[in-house]
């Protein structure tokens, strides 16, 4: 084995959110484009460096109209990074991917005079916590990027807990526990009975296969040290 291969960093998946402008065209497309041009004319280059999501749900158009629309938008320097509500058969190689489940946010269109405030670290502010008092069932996903998640009950196979900080499970962990998703390496995972399919802290993943079998069925905690997953039985 070469040294390069030995020193290869583990691949990490991190989440990051961006604000995208959503364009929802209306029929007839010609008139809508004319209106868009009028708006874009008022603030030159508005779309040049902005991510744009094209929302075509409830728009009765064909695949051909759709590809033409993408091309027309491209000519106007509007680069579509994702499409919402398109027929899956329209999309494919060389076309933007399908997206869904976006949250509504106001886009404030004015330049800010003040430099953005530096982001506060997790250590500097109180950590909110979410308490779940029922078992988390297969297919359910608890997402709480703000802080800790505590579950009084079990997390089933095929269920997942995603927390910005630590995950505490007073029961069996049979599904996935993902802690520190917002880039918090100090987050930990605690559970009463460890049967997990996957655990992750700050984007560092370990599947059940990679975890020492001696922890199965035990009360354990997991944490990161030097970018490595550590686990220990809780006495």
């Amino acid at each position: 084995m070469s040294t390069a291969a030995k020193q290869r960093q583990t691949i990490r998946f991190r989440g990051r959110s961006f604000l995208a402008t959503v364009l929802a065209p209306e029929l007839p497309l010609g008139e809508w484009l004319a209106e868009l041009d009028k708006l874009a004319g008022r603030s030159q280059g508005y779309f040049a460096s902005r991510p744009v999501i094209l929302d075509v749900s409830n728009l009765p158009i064909t695949k051909r109209d759709f590809t033409e629309l993408l091309a027309t938008l491209y000519e106007r320097e509007i680069k579509v990074m994702g499409v919402e509500g398109a027929d899956p058969s329209w999309l494919g190689y060389g076309l933007p991917p399908s997206v869904s489940g976006g949250k509504h946010a106001e886009i404030v269109h004015r330049p800010s005079a003040e430099p953005p405030k530096p982001q506060q670290g997790f250590a500097d502010r109180p950590i909110p916590s979410l308490l779940i008092e029922t078992p988390v069932r297969s297919g359910q996903s608890i997402i709480f990027p703000q802080g800790d998640v505590t579950v009084v009950g079990s997390v089933a196979s095929g269920a997942e807990i995603i927390a910005g900080n630590s995950v505490h499970i007073y029961g069996s962990l049979r599904g996935r526990a993902i802690a520190g998703t917002t880039g918090n390496a100090a987050a930990r995972i605690f559970c009463q009975k460890f049967e997990a399919e996957l655990i992750a802290i700050d984007g560092l993943y370990q599947t059940a296969d990679e975890i020492d079998a001696k922890f199965r069925g035990k009360a354990v905690q997991a944490w990161l040290a030097d970018d490595k997953m550590n686990m220990a039985a809780l006495a």
Binding site: T134, R137, S138, G139, Q140, A156, S157, G158, A159
Partner: peptide, 12 residues
């Protein structure tokens, strides 16, 4: 068992 767990979640 896992499918039943999923259905229980939906019943709730």
């Amino acid at each position: 068992v896992r499918d039943s767990d999923r259905i229980i979640g939906m019943l709730d």
